[in-house]
Design a protein around this nucleic acid. Sequence first.
DNA 1: CCTTTCACTTGACACTGTGTCAAGTTGCGA
DNA 2: TCGCAACTTGACACAGTGTCAAGTGAAAGG
Lengths: 199, 199
Amino acid sequence: MSSGNPETRKRILDSAWKLLEAAQGREVRMTDIAREAGVSRQALYLHFPARSDLLVATTLHIDEVKDVDARLVRSRSARTGIERLDAFIDAWGNYIPEIYGVGKALMIMGESDEGAKDAWAGRMGAVRHGCHAAIDALDRDGRLTAEHSVERATDILWTLLSVRNWEHLTIDCGWSQSLYIEKVSAMARRLLVADGIDG
Amino acid sequence: MSSGNPETRKRILDSAWKLLEAAQGREVRMTDIAREAGVSRQALYLHFPARSDLLVATTLHIDEVKDVDARLVRSRSARTGIERLDAFIDAWGNYIPEIYGVGKALMIMGESDEGAKDAWAGRMGAVRHGCHAAIDALDRDGRLTAEHSVERATDILWTLLSVRNWEHLTIDCGWSQSLYIEKVSAMARRLLVADGIDG
DNA sequence: CCTTTCACTTGACACTGTGTCAAGTTGCGA
DNA sequence: TCGCAACTTGACACAGTGTCAAGTGAAAGG
């Protein structure tokens, strides 16, 4: 998977992270990352076979540093379905801005590169899994609206929580992050929870 | 805006349309469009200064051929706000698959080309305008939910009806076009219309 | 009949960014 | 002192966009 000095590897990942975050995923070239990391452009290819591999490794690096698992503990240990739904939206919704830069770069690459596309689809598949678990919990409590099947409800929550929707609401519509979380939570309840908005 | 024979121009636009629709916006080069139209690659640049201009012209060409205005008549002449909301979702929601190929190409280009980005943003601004009109109509009838202001409600409808969401629900989740329309209409009502789902 | 002009063709080329290749260089451990 | 691992250096292939200059062919007009 990777040859070379682990410290160099980490420097490359940190540089990619920094630049992609600053540029929100756009126009960050291999040359830029190499310069930022203080290594030659070719050193990048010694550590990562292709740009898409570097981007994927960067998302995993961020997951590790930001401890994504710890963020999901509250969601996984929720007692009720509604609690689980809220906790999941809070965890994932607040994680999106942290990985947006790298994610965006991967999304852009995915339009032309099959490897990048699959990698991003894999990450989003994990999010769908989280959505599914929340819907299942809701269903077990008998609080899932009768209007949708579990699969359809999962599709709806997954779509509501997509990075594209976060992008649209915060960047295109100008919503603050806290407004985003508040409104999206309310929308999820309205769309998915039977009878009303009580917790 | 364009020199040269209008018939050649039309042949280029039709070719671009055909290829972009078939490829769903991906990997259609200037060379491919030229070959399909039976002209030289350079002829394209005599008619359109850049690829983004050709893409924008193609969307406008489709609007003309598909008579987008006629599709919106039912929405504009609706008597009630709810009728207007339904008619707008029906009109726009069913128009998305028709422009998806070219729209996708423009969206992809917009990630790196400022001209393409602005052009697409302009088209989407028109959609937002339609959303705003529907929300206004709902508000005048006193049927807009108290939960959101007119602006926020417009943001929500605009996001719900985004091309990205259509893409996510139909392509990634596998929903049929009719299911998409049905579910999105129901979601819009649930999120935006006060007390229930009656028309 | 000759000339001009328009619409297009032909072929070459600059530019950007990714990825590859081959030949160094440097430092460290056996 | 040998040899290897990690990295550097510089050249190059490739794809796709966009530019440039010269050429062709047909039609319009003096």
